[in-house]
Design a protein around this nucleic acid. Sequence first.
DNA 1: TCCTTAATTATCAAACTTGACAATCAATTG
DNA 2: CAATTGATTGTCAAGTTTGATAATTAAGGA
Lengths: 195, 195
Amino acid sequence: MARPEIKEMRREQILDAFEVCVAKYGVEGATLAKTAEQAGLARPLVRHNVGNREELINALVERFLARSRQEMQAFFDTLPANDMARSAVDWLFDPQYTDTQFVQVAYALITFSAGDAGMAKKMRAWLKNFQESLNNLIVDDFPQADPQSISAVSAGIMGIYFNVETLHAISSPDSLLIPSKKAALILLTSLEAPK
Amino acid sequence: MARPEIKEMRREQILDAFEVCVAKYGVEGATLAKTAEQAGLARPLVRHNVGNREELINALVERFLARSRQEMQAFFDTLPANDMARSAVDWLFDPQYTDTQFVQVAYALITFSAGDAGMAKKMRAWLKNFQESLNNLIVDDFPQADPQSISAVSAGIMGIYFNVETLHAISSPDSLLIPSKKAALILLTSLEAPK
DNA sequence: TCCTTAATTATCAAACTTGACAATCAATTG
DNA sequence: CAATTGATTGTCAAGTTTGATAATTAAGGA
């Protein structure tokens, strides 16, 4: 009947830009003006296509959680049947495929969610899901290892990975990445020997 | 001759409050008004005792770096001569002595410093110093271990520690802390066996 | 071409944040 | 007590950020 809707496209475009800003400046530092500039759009379009600031934040959180689950699932599906955990570590610490923005956004949202109980709950669940997914991989690869050691290894790898990605903004990648990956592999290897 | 100066005391009081706000909201979210409220002072006192926003941030960074070195030095001095690294891990992951704000402020400053080359350099140096200090402890304890493995262990412990502290705001402490500490100990133990 | 629908732009008001300064109050010394 | 120095308070202007709406423009169908 009339002009075609591009609201969905614009919405994604704006959320992409907002995500970049959140990763760079944190949630509180990611203003609508910066977001609009990053998107190459006028500020009123942010409101028109997504809503006010609160709705923008909620939309980002929901999209982040949905994508996160989705990508995690896709990732697990591509892993080989054997040595899944090692493959996962290879991928997590591969500078070519790694997505520094992912963890930076996660940390920004977690920091922000300290003042928002509902959001905090969601981020806590997301974190738990991340660690449990890693944990399950390791259980499959090392069925004989004791659960506490496996929890330690999954928590450790997650921590090392998050830290590397977060510090990527400031540190020269290799100086931290290489020893960090090695540390993750040491953790995995520790499960090989019968306890 | 006149009313005694309490500027130094007020300055510390204000920087303490600003630090709390930076940990909570990030640098960009830590406004002068929030800082003043946190300090229990009127906003103009912030300016009177420390200066404008830029000076406040610089003062916080300098104090953070100075304290950090100082406390790290003091910490190393109290470590026993043997098993220093393990004692360090015990301390880092001891919920009683740990200071979650410390790492949260560090991350906030690092995030912010992405847009400030001079500050980025300082934070990079701080980070390097932290890892090297840990590294030196481990070298002393495991002189026979190869340098690359030691670097991996120090980078890993640092990452796990930073991650635990950062997520402390959102995660129930024990569920992450216990496996994380265990992971740090696994890393240390991996250096015991001759390669 | 004309109409309809939606995207885009322009613009304004309100709230918030910062910077700055004058006026007032408090405490110590002579 | 008086004078002096500094802490404290009150206040205002400038700039920024957000919220909201009216006006304009663009794209397709009848």
